[in-house]
Design a protein around this nucleic acid. Structure first.
Length: 424
RNA sequence: GGAGAAGUGGGUGAGUGGCUGAAACCAACAGUUUGCUAAACUGUCGUACGGGUUAAACCGUACCGGGGGUUCGAAUCCCCCCUUCUCCGCCA
C-alpha cells in the first residue's frame, strides 16, 4: 500500500509511474485518494477540537470535585451531555473517511521503479540476460508429462485419487529428486549467508494483509474456515510477516532469510492446454529468499539476489533468460521484478522458475516495518523476495533437457544429494 | 477441551476512577570526568495522525494485548475476543 503522504508530496511522480503499468484508472484513483485524505484531515480537526474541549471541561469538574464544590461540578456536568454525542458522531465521520481512503489505497498498485519499462504485458518485458545453449533433443524427445509416466516417478492419477487435480504424488526417484533439490537450494543459500527459517504454512488474516495477498486475492488462497487460516501461496507470506509491527535497529540489518515450504494455490480459472503436467499445480515446493533492507541498499540487494538465482541455474546446467518485467506485467505489490525462465527442451518453451522483486516500502507500509535511521527518524524499510527456486518447472526442465536413451541424467551438482546419477 | 491466573513503554516493573503518556530501575543515546577501558555524574530517551513552521520550536487528538461498553473523566470498572502461564484431560 502506498503512503498517502507520498501521493500528496509526489503526485506527479506517482502518476507517471502508474502510467507505466498501463493502469487506466490511475488518475481517478489518485484523485480519490487525495480527496478522501483531505476530507479526513478536515474532519480530524473538528474531532480533535471537540475532544480537547471536553478534556478541559472534565479536568475542571475534577478540580471542583477535589475542592468539594459539588454543586458547581454538577452544574458543569449538566452542560456536557450534548457534547459527548457530537464527539461520537465526529469520530464516526473520521473513521468512515479513513475507511474510504483505505479502500482506495488498497486498489493502487506500487509505483514502478525508474528503470522499469512501460508496457502492456509479457511481450513488452525486456530480455536483459541469457545464458546457456538451448538443448538439441532428438525429434522423439518426450515432454515431462510423458517422461514421468515412462519412469514412474510422478503420478498425477494417484494425486487425483487422494486429493484432486494438480496435487501430484512423487514416487521413488521422483521423490528423491524433490528432496535433493530442496536440500541443494537450502545449502546454497546458507552458504550465501541466508538464515534458514521453517515457518508455519498456514497464516492468519493479518498476515495476508501484511504482504498484500488480501484483500484482493483471497480467491487464490485455500482457506480453512473452521480456524480462519489461509494456506500459504508462498513462503514470502509467513517469512515477511515475521517482521510485521517491528521497529528494527540499524544493527539488525540487513535481514536475509531463506525458507522451504510447500505452496498452495487455488489457481481458479487459470487452467488450459499450456499448463499441462508440472507447469501449474495446486501444491508445489519452493525455496524462497527474503530480505529486509535499508532503502538505500535495496536495489543492490535485488541485484545480489538475481546473481544468486543465476548461479543456481548455472549450477543446474539449465539454459535460462532473465527478464526485466514491464509495468504492465509486474505484480501489484512490486516496484521492480526480474523473472527467470528456463528453457524446457521438449515443450520448446520458456518456463518461469523464479521471480525476484523489490517491493520498496509497499509491503513495509502495511506491515509497519520500520527502523530508526541515522538521524534517529523512523523510516519504512524495504522488503524483497525471490524464488530460489520453485521446484516443479525446474524438475520439468531437468527431465526434458537431460533425457537420453539410457534414462534421465541428473545434473552433477545434484548427484551428491540424490545419490544416483540417472533415472532409468 | 475444562478450571484458575496474568497481559503496562526496548526490558524489569509501579500504578484500582481525575494533575498518569504513564513512577522507579535497567538498557540505549549524547555529554562531563578519565592516558585507554571501566566506574561515576549530567542530560535525552514512545508511536501515529493532525495543526503550525522555510525548517524547527510549539500545540492538539489518540494509544497501557485487541474490540466494545459504563462515566463529565478509564491503564484502573463491565462485556467479548486473543495470547501466555499453572493444574487437569487428550495426544504425534
Amino acid at each position: 500500500m502506498l503512503q498517502v503522504t507520498r501521493i500528496r508530496d509526489e503526485k506527479d511522480k506517482v502518476l507517471a509511474g502508474l502510467r507505466k503499468r498501463n493502469l487506466k484508472e490511475a488518475d481517478l484513483l489518485i484523485e480519490a485518494a487525495l480527496d478522501h485524505d483531505k476530507e479526513r484531515r478536515r474532519k480530524q480537526v473538528f474531532r480533535d477540537e471537540a475532544s480537547a474541549e471536553l478534556n478541559v471541561l472534565s479536568a475542571k469538574i475534577g478540580g471542583l470535585m477535589k475542592e468539594g464544590k459539588k454543586v458547581e461540578a454538577e452544574e458543569l456536568r449538566a452542560t456536557i451531555s450534548g457534547k459527548k454525542e457530537a464527539i461520537k458522531s465526529l469520530e464516526e465521520e473520521v473513521k468512515q473517511e479513513e475507511a474510504r481512503l483505505q479502500e482506495v489505497l488498497y486498489k493502487i498498485p506500487n509505483v514502478p521503479a525508474e528503470k522499469v519499462p512501460a508496457g502492456q504485458g509479457a511481450d513488452d518485458n525486456l530480455n536483459v540476460h541469457q545464458h546457456g545453449a538451448l538443448p538439441s533433443l532428438p525429434p522423439d524427445a518426450l515432454p515431462h508429462w510423458e517422461l514421468i509416466k515412462k519412469y514412474d516417478i510422478i503420478d498425477f492419477d494417484l494425486g487425483v485419487k487422494i486429493s484432486g487435480a494438480g496435487f501430484p504424488v512423487y514416487k521413488g526417484k521422483g521423490a528423491k529428486l524433490q528432496r535433493a533439490l530442496i536440500n541443494f537450494f537450502l545449502d546454497e543459500a546458507a552458504g550465501q549467508n541466508y538464515r534458514e527459517m521453517q515457518p508455519p504454512i498456514v497464516v492468519n488474516e493479518a498476515s495476508g494483509y501484511g504482504t498484500g495477498q488480501l484483500p484482493d486475492k483471497e480467491g487464490q488462497m485455500y482457506f480453512i474456515n473452521a480456524d480462519g487460516l489461509y494456506l500459504i501461496p508462498t513462503a514470502e507470506v509467513p517469512i515477511t510477516n515475521l517482521y510485521r509491527d517491528l521497529i528494527l535497529e540499524e544493527r539488525d540489518l540487513p535481514i536475509r532469510n531463506v525458507g522451504y515450504t510447500p505452496c498452495f494455490r487455488r489457481e481458479a480459472g487459470s487452467w488450459g492446454a499450456h499448463v499441462r503436467g508440472l507447469n501449474r499445480l495446486h501444491q508445489f515446493d519452493k525455496v524462497e529468499i527474503v530480505q529486509v533492507r535499508k532503502p538505500e541498499e535495496s536495489y543492490a540487494a535485488l541485484d545480489e539476489m538475481c546473481a544468486y538465482v543465476q548461479g543456481l541455474l548455472e549450477k543446474l546446467e539449465l539454459p535460462y533468460r532473465k527478464l526485466l518485467l514491464c509495468g504492465g506485467d509486474m505484480g501489484f505489490n512490486s516496484a521492480m521484478t526480474y523473472d527467470f525462465e528456463v528453457f524446457s527442451g521438449a515443450q520448446q518453451r520458456w518456463l518461469e522458475v523464479s521471480s525476484v522483486s523489490n517491493f520498496e516500502t509497499f509491503q513495509a507500509n502495511r506491515l509497519r516495518l520500520r527502523y530508526k535511521n541515522k538521524e534517529g527518524k523512523m523510516e519504512l524499510l524495504h522488503t524483497l523476495n525471490g524464488s530460489a527456486l520453485a521446484l516443479p518447472r525446474i524438475v520439468a526442465a531437468i527431465l526434458e533437457n537431460n533425457q537420453t536413451a539410457e534414462g534421465i541424467r541428473i545434473p552433477k551438482i545434484l548427484q551428491p544429494y540424490t545419490r544416483f546419477d540417472r533415472i532409468d
